[in-house]
């Protein structure tokens, strides 16, 4: 197996999927940054550098797909919570549908290719 190729391939694949995963994580409930990172890190092979999540959250906020709010926490400073905006919900739904179509297509190819 070509390790350079594998590294490039997984990096490219993760890039797009991470945004989808962040949006889906927030579609269940609002979460603060550390919580989002912990949820996504639990998925094997998805997060290599935990810090990658923060620039992505920042871009999603800039694109008005998520919003932030501060709330006092019991054991420390106020926490910054991220939550989906209405636009973010629509975008997540569209991305999930697109992902589903893609998944079905790729799965079909894989099934045909398997002897």
């Amino acid at each position: 197996m070509n390790s350079d190729f594998s590294t490039n391939w997984t990096t490219q694949l993760r890039k797009g999927i991470l945004e989808l995963c962040i949006l889906n994580t927030l579609s269940r409930e609002r979460q603060y940054g550390y919580e989002i990172v912990r949820s996504l890190s639990a998925i094997d092979g998805l997060v290599i550098s935990e810090g990658t999540i923060y620039p992505l959250l920042n871009r999603l906020k800039r694109d008005l797909l998520v919003s932030t709010s501060f709330e006092e926490s019991s054991g420390g400073p106020p926490r910054k919570y991220y939550e989906l905006t209405d636009k973010g919900r629509e975008q997540t739904q569209w991305m999930n549908e697109y992902w589903q179509r893609l998944l079905l297509g790729v799965e079909g190819l894989r099934t045909e290719a398997t002897p």
């Binding site: 620039p55 871009r59 910054k80």
Partner: peptide, 15 residues
């Protein structure tokens, strides 16, 4: 870059 550096620094400190 296109991101807000001070906001990310705050996020990382919180993390």
């Amino acid at each position: 870059t296109s991101v807000d550096v001070s906001e990310i620094e705050t996020d990382v400190r919180d993390h």
